[in-house]
Simulated scan of single mutants.
Amino acid sequence: MFWQRLAAVLSLISVFFCASPALADWTHPMSFSNADLTNRDFSGQSLQAAEFSNANMELTNFTGADLRGAVLSASVMTKSNLHGADLTNAMVDQVNLTGADLSDAVLKEALLFRAIFNNVNITGADFTDAILDKAQIKELCQKASGVNSKTNVETRNSLGCR
């Protein structure tokens, strides 16, 4: 009787802990934290939920990359190319984006507190429901223009510019 119960419990545990392939992708994301990724090419790659915190990504190419749910916290992304990248639900807090190209990027529901946006190109970027502070919104509204090609949302509207 004991062995039958144990076998049943073990069977249930194995079913419970066997993750589907989609879940497995999110439970073991790629990690590039603390890495020097200067001049790397990640264009068009699927990097969902990848970790890039405290990384140096100066001049790195993320054109058209899928960065949904990625963690980019406290990284350097000066002069990086994020044209057309999907950063929905990404953590982009405390990131230096000076000179970066965010044109046509999707930043829906992204966390962008204390990110530095000096000399960035945000033409056509979608910031719908992104978390920004008032100073960042004011700065970005001064240069906001265009419509995102994927979401058809105007950059100025996504930022709530007046």
Rank of each mutant, 00 (worst) to 15 (best):
C141M: 05
W3G: 01
A22I: 07
F16T: 02
R68F: 04
G44W: 08
V120G: 06
K108M: 13
S46E: 14
M77C: 15
S103V: 02
F32Q: 05
T123V: 03
A65S: 15
L111Y: 14
S158A: 03
T27I: 06
S14I: 03
L107V: 02
L87A: 09
L82I: 01
A70Y: 11
F32M: 02
N56A: 06
M77K: 02
M91G: 01
D25H: 09
D126L: 09
I137L: 03
R156E: 15
A125C: 06
A35Q: 15
S14G: 07
S80L: 03
R162Y: 14
L59H: 13
G69S: 04
R5P: 00
T155H: 11
D129Y: 08
L102N: 05
F62A: 02
S14H: 06
R156M: 07
K138Q: 14
A115R: 07
G64V: 01
S43P: 08
N54H: 12
C18K: 09
A55L: 03
K138I: 02
L37D: 12
N34Y: 14
A49I: 02
K150I: 08
S31P: 09
Q4S: 11
N96D: 15
P29N: 09
S158L: 09
K79H: 15
T78G: 05
V120C: 04
R40F: 13
T78A: 05
D133M: 05
F113E: 03
D36R: 10
Q94L: 11
Q48I: 00
G84E: 10
T63N: 07
V120H: 09
N96E: 10
Q94P: 02
D104P: 02
A100W: 06
G44N: 05
M30W: 10
A74W: 15
T155N: 09
S73A: 14
A130R: 07
A19M: 12
R162H: 13
V76K: 07
D66F: 10
S46R: 10
K79L: 11
R162E: 15
S33I: 00
S53C: 06
G124K: 04
T38Q: 13
S158D: 09
K150L: 12
F2I: 04
D66W: 12
N121R: 06
N81Q: 08
D86R: 09
R40L: 08
L72V: 01
S46H: 12
K138T: 13
M57I: 04
V92Y: 08
T63A: 04
T60G: 06
A7M: 09
L47V: 01
D126K: 06
